[in-house]
């Protein structure tokens, strides 16, 4: 089968094509995922950029699950323990992630409460589900097409970093609001577990080899 041409576009969006493509693997080549150069199968390192060459990271799933589990374990205390300790003259207030968002919503800032809930609850939980689904979908038949699953992977990879918002908010508040006895804000233990959870799930997404999504031919064109 001959090679397909690259799709060249000036402006505008790409066309959806269901044309079958030739893969590097089917030609006995291994692609460098860093610099896109191809090499004969069996070469271990890319001679251009020095990255390790693997046709498919078949064992990468173990790594994905390991990071995924670490992320999930860290996510539990991140929701139970307080994220912020606010001390004012008369009281000390400890708020968790969800508690803090509810507090903001009660003050009428629904937009900001929504940002926090989306970044700290919806995105992490969605990410756990999405990564697990993608990893499981490689082993069994699923109804979602390869195109849709690849889109899901791209979304997970792009959006995962944004969960760090809450950690940065805690960092900003704790450095800014240090006004001796009147008011001070300090980070709670959840800040560190939440940051770890975000980092671990990012590593899980980065360990996933998206090329495996496309490997099963009858699934890629349902």
């Amino acid at each position: 089968m001959p090679l397909v041409d690259l799709e060249i576009i000036g402006q505008g969006s790409p066309q959806v094509s269901d044309q079958p493509v030739v893969t590097a693997r089917s030609r006995g080549l291994v692609a460098c995922t860093r610099c896109t150069r191809v090499w004969p199968m069996g070469q271990d390192f890319c001679s251009r950029c020095g990255s390790a060459l693997v046709s498919r990271h078949t064992r990468s799933l173990q790594r994905v699950w390991a990071w995924w589990a670490m992320g999930l374990i860290c996510y539990v205390p991140a929701n139970i323990y307080p994220m912020l300790r606010t001390r004012t003259l008369f009281m000390t207030d400890e708020s968790t992630i969800i508690g803090g968002a509810v507090e903001i919503a009660r003050h009428g800032s629904f937009g900001v409460a929504a940002i926090i809930l989306i970044a700290s609850v919806l995105i992490p939980v969605g990410k756990f589900i999405a990564i697990a689904y993608l990893a499981l979908s490689l082993r069994r038949k699923v109804s979602m097409s390869s195109h849709a699953r690849h889109k899901l992977y791209e979304v997970v990879e792009f959006i995962g970093r944004w969960s760090m918002i809450d950690v940065f908010v805690v960092a900003i508040l704790s450095s800014l609001v240090q006004l001796s006895a009147v008011a001070s804000i300090n980070p709670g233990p959840a800040a560190i577990t939440f940051a770890l959870s975000v980092i671990f799930t990012m590593l899980a997404a980065l360990s996933f080899d998206p090329r495996m999504i496309w490997d099963n031919p009858e699934e890629s064109h349902p």
């Binding site: 041409d5 690259l6 590097a24 080549l29 191809v38 690849h150 090329r211 496309w214």
Partner: peptide, 22 residues
Amino acid sequence: SSASLVPEAELIACPQCDALYH
């Protein structure tokens, strides 16, 4: 063109889905 006729240096593989192109 067929991949076997093109030198490897002129090929490019998609890092996301392994599709091979000239």
